[in-house]
Amino acid sequence: MRWDEVDELLRAALQKEVAEGVKRLEGLEERVIQELARRPARESLWQRIREFLTRPTPRWALVGAMAALLLGFALGRLTSPSPIPQWSPNLFVIAAPGARSVAVVGDFSAWQPLPMSDPDGDGIWTASIPLPPGRYEYAFLVDGKWIGQDPLAEEYLRTFGEYVSVRYVGGSRENLSS
């Protein structure tokens, strides 16, 4: 018997198994619609933030200030870039018109976000990062969204459905150390 027959048997058996239970799904559409209609409409995060800012109370302002201070510290610790070795500079560029924040993450930052800048406001964000020779995987974060395919990259890898870009830097035979 060829493998193909096992494959066919498997396909047929699984179809039969699902088919036997599928009658339970009659009327599922209505049940889902009723359940969704019963639930209160969910406000978007932005709506909730806007509501908060337009209807403040002093007590919550104080609590908010404390929380924001702590959050600021926490974010600061998490997003602070690590020291980068001083080798030749390398430029990372991404077009992100209208973005509020853009960062690059990669092997060179141990995947911590390094902020990029757009001083003239033309939507072209850049970061110049001194890098020693090597092969680097990286991606951009545009308003927190992972952008893994840099048109300037030499290769891409697809990991768990997300892309990362790859570029090779340098050409000298300096030994690396970390």
């Binding site: 403040p56 908010g64 959050l71 600021g72 510290f73």
Partner: peptide, 18 residues
């Protein structure tokens, strides 16, 4: 609203300081 502007200011200061 001034209260909440202060929240944002303090948060930014915390971020930079941290």
């Amino acid at each position: 609203k001034i209260c909440h502007l202060s929240v944002l200011f303090v948060a930014c200061a915390g971020l930079v300081f941290a």
